[in-house]
Design a protein around this nucleic acid. Structure first.
Length: 731
DNA sequence: AGCACGCCGACT
DNA sequence: GTCGGCGTGCTC
């Protein structure tokens, strides 16, 4: 609404400013200017100026009119934020207990986008002018320019294969003149039928289902499909349908690392590149995408979670790929889950939302089961290829001898695979040499002075490292407690230790350790990944970084060294996360293997995670998960209670949360850490956590914690408590 | 005295 | 989120 009091009073407007204040501020609208809700404006705030947006709430009447400052600029070239987006911002702020202005800040992420794209300087041939002296470089430049169009200086130099100084010389001699070139033209539109692949019957059925959801308007669809089942081709059909309906589409991906291959597949399907949005995009491109999305020139965006806050002009579809991935959760500033907020945005604007995964999260599975989401399953690979054959090795029956970590059956399998010239992957999600070092004489255990976690030996770096806080120290010669020499003993395996065993057993094989902490950094890792892809290594020992986004076609065997690792956490998502990780590594869900088989070393062959992986029957696994949560006193499906931690003193906070999790009685389910999308749920009595009956923003976590713990260092302030919860319950 | 640092509150 | 004000405590 426009707050134009016709009579004599000045026009005023509520403006949401991008700072953590609880409400909109009131500003005067300069005479002759007009604003509507959603208009983007620049306003003075304290000692500086900020960009905000006019909001549709009544200006605060209680404020002293003398105090009012004036809007300094109205961005009238930029379309106002539409009502749906404003409602979405308010919804997210309410949900996260954050300041609406902080949510708005995520919308206004590119100040540069508010200005029109500046024209770029270019050069053009001056009619009839010739250089004083003709050189071959100059001739090449002039030949390149024969089309008569203007070129950018560097573009021309590149195209002609000369250095930019040649161009400068021609400008000097007035052979070329500097002109202003119009900004980049709008990006080309996707071509709906550029290269539509022939879909399998199963894919067609799902695609048809997705297309039909547009008729209903709203609705969430969950696609549960193994990798290779062609989920991507299926939701390309949904994108095509959105485009046919003159709507924009957004694809959310959990990680930037995955975007590149996705962009290429999109291009193969639609003939053009989609717009791309994530934290590493250059400011100029960021501004272009923002403007294009707001104007409607950009039809499809592939982006990380923050693209959910782009000011789409006519958004009509969101696809959340790898919906189970924790990277959709933002932990700092406004803490939100992009997957859940995508569902909210679809709900507010009345368009379909598609969630896709090979290992859907428990809450999405439950939402599908109870009919809130429509479920489609693609259990088979589109190529008809078989899924890898998985078997367990029960370590209680068939384990290795003492001091060894590879079971005889796994060793045999590696041997056969190596003999056949194929690759093996040994997966162990534990960096370093050994997770625990102790003194054989006095029993001293090496712990981190800072957070009391065990120090992990990294033999390669000759250090003891805390994987929790990063603290490290050299490995001492003598026990620091009893001074005994040669008394320290490494307990348990890490990838370095498994690698040692492998080179012992297979001295002729080319082995490679892939772990994030190896010297050489990301570049070396990238090189080594390539070596593996090309078959330049026989046995790979890797941590979880081999699980994601890599395709190792020559890998015929996966051995999981400690399949139970991660199951015993206090984290209520432990089983789910382990299931997802192992499914990905073994090729049940991921792309790591080129078929073949997998062997899981386990002490818990009857655990639902292991059984679920072996049988491929996820349903039983989900049922077991839901039941386990019920037994643990956690809220039932979809509403996973979690405890929280973030703030300035993260190490303290995490230590406290862990201690709290241990100390809490069984019916006070305290666990996880993460930010704050959720005290709200507790306040509304949706959850059992007593702590949260206090006022949401001021509850005293500190004294609550002290009551349990009664000692220890005082955490500084800034702890926040929160639950990881499904917003469906509040819509 | 002069200043670095951290905490706190205001910002319309 | 960001800034300025103010108190504490250390150095020249």
């Amino acid at each position: 609404m426009l707050f134009d009091d016709q009579d004599f009073q000045e026009t005023i407007a509520s403006v949401l400013v991008p700072v953590a204040v609880p409400k909109a501020y009131t500003y005067k609208v300069p005479p002759g200017q007009s604003v509507v809700p959603g208009t983007i404006v620049r306003v003075p705030l304290g000692p500086r100026e900020v960009v905000g947006a006019v909001w549709d709430i009544e200006p605060d009447a209680a404020i002293n009119p003398k105090k009012l400052k004036s809007i300094t600029r109205v961005y009238d070239q930029t379309p106002p934020l539409d009502e749906d987006l404003r409602r979405f911002v308010d919804w997210v702020a309410n949900w996260t207990l954050g300041a609406p202005g902080m949510v708005l800040r995520m919308v206004l992420r590119s100040e540069e986008a508010l200005e029109p794209e500046p024209p770029v300087p270019g050069v053009r041939r001056v009619e009839g002018a010739e250089p004083e002296r003709q050189t071959s470089a100059r001739r090449r430049v002039l030949e390149t320019m024969e089309d008569g169009f203007a070129w950018t200086r560097s573009g021309l130099a590149h195209a002609a294969g000369v250095s930019p100084s040649v161009i400068d010389g021609l400008i000097q001699q007035n052979v070329l003149e500097v002109v202003s070139m119009p900004a980049a033209p709008p990006p080309p539109k996707p071509q709906l039928d550029y290269a539509r692949k022939k879909l399998t019957d199963a894919q067609e059925a799902v695609a048809a289902g997705l297309v039909s959801t547009f008729e209903k308007g709203t609705g969430v669809t969950l696609i549960d499909g193994v990798t290779g089942s062609g989920k991507t081709e299926v939701y390309f059909e949904a994108i095509a349908e959105a485009l046919r309906r003159e709507k924009q589409a957004l694809v959310l991906l959990p990680e930037i690392a995955l975007t590149e291959q996705f962009l290429r597949r999109y291009e193969q399907r639609f003939g053009v590149y989609p717009a791309e949005w994530h934290s590493e995009i250059t400011p100029k491109n960021r501004a272009r995408v923002w403007r294009g999305v707001a104007s409607g020139d950009v039809r499809v965006v592939i982006g990380a979670r923050s693209s959910l806050f782009l000011p789409f002009r006519e958004l009509g579809l969101i696809i959340v790929d790898e919906e189970h991935d924790a990277a959709f959760k933002q932990d700092d500033r406004v803490p939100y889950s992009a997957r859940d907020m995508a569902v909210v945005r679809g709900h507010i604007s009345g368009f379909p939302v598609v969630l896709a995964s090979a290992t859907p999260s428990v809450e999405s599975h439950v939402n599908a089961e109870i009919g809130r989401y429509t479920l489609y399953e693609l259990p088979e690979r589109a190529s008809g290829a078989a899924l890898p054959d998985l078997q367990a090795i029960d370590m209680r029956l068939d384990g290795p001898e003492r001091g060894r970590w590879l079971a005889p059956r796994l060793v045999h399998a590696i041997k056969d695979t190596f003999a056949a010239g194929d690759q093996s992957l040994l997966f162990l999600n534990r960096r370093g040499y050994a997770p625990l070092t102790l003194c054989r004489t006095c029993g001293h255990r090496f712990q981190c002075a800072h957070c009391s976690a065990w120090l992990v030996e990294h033999r390669f770096q000759k250090r003891l490292v805390c994987h929790h806080c990063g603290h490290f120290e050299p490995v001492p010669d003598n026990c620091p407690s009893c001074q005994s020499a040669n008394s320290l003993v490494a307990c348990g395996p890490g990838v370095e230790r498994v690698a040692e065993e492998v080179s012992d057993l297979f001295p002729q094989a080319r082995t490679l350790v892939l772990s994030s902490d190896l010297p050489g950094g990301p570049e070396r890792l990238k090189r080594e990944m390539k070596i593996v892809e090309e078959g330049g290594a026989d046995i790979i020992i890797g941590t979880q970084l081999v699980a994601k986004g890599h395709n190792f076609p020559k890998m015929k065997l996966v051995g999981v060294i400690d399949a139970d690792l991660g199951l015993a956490h206090g984290d209520p998502r432990a089983a789910e996360k382990t299931f997802q990780l192992l499914a990905q590594v073994t090729g049940r869900a991921g792309r790591v293997t080129g078929g073949g088989r997998g062997l899981l070393q386990t002490y818990n062959a009857d655990h639902p995670v292991i059984k679920g992986l072996l049988s491929g029957d996820k349903h039983a696994f989900y049922q077991a998960e839901i039941e386990a949560r019920r037994v643990a006193g956690l809220p039932p499906f979809g509403r996973l209670a979690a405890v929280v931690v973030s703030g300035p003193d993260k190490i303290f906070a995490e230590g406290y949360a862990r201690a709290l999790a241990r100390a809490a009685p069984p019916d006070e389910a305290v666990t996880l850490l993460g930010p704050a999308e959720a005290a709200l749920a507790m306040v509304r009595g949706r959850h059992r956590y007593r702590l949260l009956t206090m006022a949401p923003r001021q509850f005293d976590l500190q004294s609550y914690l002290r009551r349990w713990l009664n000692q220890g260092p005082k955490p500084t302030k800034g702890l926040r408590v929160q639950i990881d919860i499904d917003p469906q319950h509040f819509m």
